[in-house]
């Protein structure tokens, strides 16, 4: 057990715990913030695995951008808070399936890689230059494809999220398909009007 192992275990515990909090938190904003902690932990894991550039990208993209994006998403949709509304009735099934899968995965991982050690020496930090060379030589075509995909996703997201033309600035009043959610019906009915008046226009 090297010092590296100890550090890793600490990081792993924090990461795992934050992940669990992410999926169980009753507060949406807390969930998003715990996601941030989880992502930071994963970034630390990357550092421990000597992937410093990936770690940096992880921090910049995930922590810096995606977490904020989620927070905005949560705020804009103003979802209600509470276990009943946040968790579906599939929760028991999800628990069983996930636990079973985790158990099986752990068994398989230990059986398959239990004896593997990383190279005895300290992990060599792969330089950014190597990464760049790999991306722009071997993987240049996938790289271009990915960039095209990113562009397409950008356009698609804009197209999907923009307000439909022809509205007079307020949200069209819509009714949920299923009115049967009695406890939240009132709230749902009020929502469009609030949004219309509370909007920037």
């Amino acid at each position: 057990m090297t010092s590296l192992d100890i550090v890793f275990i600490l990081v792993a515990v924090v990461t795992g715990g934050a992940a669990v909090m992410t999926v169980t938190s009753r507060n949406l904003v807390h969930a998003a913030l715990f996601l941030g902690v989880t992502l930071a932990g994963i970034g630390a894991t990357f550092l421990l695995l000597a992937a410093d550039f990936v770690a940096m990208v992880q921090v910049v993209v995930y922590l810096g951008a995606i977490t904020v994006l989620f927070l905005f998403g949560l705020m804009l949709t103003r979802a209600p808070i509470g276990r009943e509304t946040l968790d579906s009735r599939n929760r028991p099934m999800a628990m069983v399936v996930s636990a079973a899968l985790f158990g099986i995965l752990v068994v398989l991982i230990v059986r398959a890689f239990g004896s593997n050690q990383f190279p005895a020496t300290e992990p060599i930090s792969s330089s950014v230059a190597d990464l760049g060379m790999a991306i722009f030589s071997t993987w240049v075509f996938p790289f271009e494809v990915v960039s095209m995909m990113l562009l397409a996703a950008l356009v698609g997201a804009v197209l999907l999220a923009r307000r439909q033309s022809g509205d007079s600035g307020t949200e069209t009043r819509v009714t949920p398909i299923r009115e049967a959610l009695d406890d939240s019906t009132e709230e749902l009915d009020r929502a469009p009007a609030e949004l219309g008046s509370g909007g920037e226009r």
């Binding site: 990461t15 795992g16 992940a19 669990v20 992410t22 999926v23 949406l28 989880t38 994963i42 979802a79 509304t85 946040l86 968790d87 579906s88 599939n90 929760r91 099934m93 999800a94 628990m95 399936v97 996930s98 636990a99 899968l101 985790f102 995965l105």
Partner: peptide
């Protein structure tokens, strides 16, 4: 993390 994420996908309503 994968299984936790999986749980979240299956259990969360939001």
């Amino acid at each position: 993390l994968f299984c936790v994420g999986l749980y979240g996908v299956m259990a969360r309503r939001n």
